[in-house]
């Protein structure tokens, strides 16, 4: 099983540990990831309104690079997934736009055909790899660990982009991965809520309240860990956790881990090997 791996910008910077963990476990799982070093930033859910034409050409180019490799494209970031799929959706439903975009790409020896699927690590595990196979790889089941799934917005909404996958109000894909790894999944209201990442700089007070509400909900439901398939959610929930908790009048803490790290723990890697010591919050307190 081989994918063109679209590296989210944040995974080369603030959340390097997501990538470190993924690199460790890809051998165990038997998933080959061809790194797309030539891919550009997805536009971070911003380029679309700064310059809509550039946004679609930029992501058409990114997808065309995967098509040239003859591979489906996988990302580990929800917002990258959204940006890439928004472009793909437009291009696959508008022949005139596709032709226009391809006129630009042609002079750079690229063509957007629509042949490569754009997917996310969470979907790969559920759809391509299979949860039974994932279960068979588990060396150290996460028995007794209470894990709160935090999906993040851009893997659930807008749901029309994501086909017949998760119900945006009652998703299951991440819950099923937790169960396959032997963990105990927690049902809580915030699992489909927003983390506040996209307003961290522009509306910091609101962002802290948004993150704080989800964090307190997870703690109130006794979570040992929060797991998220998105490095942006991780950043909002981990790096500002103390401030977010304070806004909610709480002094509790709960470690937030990446999907790749959760799998790594079940495959027998140590938290240190998985870069979990790099997180701001490393222990749980009530």
């Amino acid at each position: 099983m081989k994918f063109a791996y679209y590296i989210s910008c944040i995974n080369e910077g603030m959340t390097k540990e997501l990538d470190i963990a993924l690199n460790l476990l890809k051998k165990d799982l038997g998933i080959e990831l061809a790194r797309m070093e030539e891919a550009t930033c997805c536009g971070g859910s911003n380029l679309e309104f700064v310059h809509p034409d550039v946004a679609v050409v930029n992501n058409a180019r990114n997808i065309a690079l995967a098509e040239k490799m003859g591979l489906d494209m996988v990302t580990t970031c929800n917002t990258c997934l959204l940006g890439l799929l928004e472009a793909k959706h437009k291009l696959d439903h508008d022949e005139a736009l596709k032709a226009k975009v391809n006129r630009y790409l042609k002079s750079h020896k690229l063509e957007y055909k629509g042949t490569s699927k754009v997917t996310h690590l969470l979907w790969v595990l559920n759809e391509d790899y299979g949860l039974d196979k994932l279960k068979s790889k588990v060396k150290k089941p996460l028995t007794g660990l209470k894990i709160a799934p935090f999906y993040g917005c851009h893997i659930l909404r807008p749901s029309h982009l994501f086909g017949q996958r998760d119900n945006p109000y009652a998703p299951r894909s991440l819950d099923l991965v937790i169960e396959a790894l032997g963990g105990e999944r927690i049902e809580y209201e915030s699992k489909t809520k927003c983390c506040g990442f996209h307003t961290m700089l522009v509306a910091p007070e609101e962002s802290l309240k948004v993150a704080g509400k989800a964090l307190v909900d997870a703690v109130d439901n006794d979570a040992d860990y929060i797991v998220t398939p998105c490095p942006l959610c991780h950043t909002a929930l981990d790096s500002n956790q103390a401030d977010a908790m304070k806004v909610m009048g709480s002094s509790a803490s709960v470690p937030v881990i990446h999907l790749s790290q959760l799998i790594g723990l079940a495959l027998g890697y140590s938290p240190q090997q998985l870069g979990m010591n790099k997180h701001v919050v490393t222990s749980r307190s009530a």
């Binding site: 080369e12 910077g13 630009y104």
Partner: peptide, 29 residues
């Protein structure tokens, strides 16, 4: 925590072509 993003992240090797591409789109728009 050693989580400082690089001041100069890796440039894609084709960054000049990307710049030309974006400028073409901007000009046409």
């Amino acid at each position: 925590k050693g989580r400082v993003p690089p001041i100069f992240p890796h440039k894609v090797s084709t960054h000049r072509e990307v710049k030309t591409l974006v400028e073409q789109v901007e000009k046409e728009s």
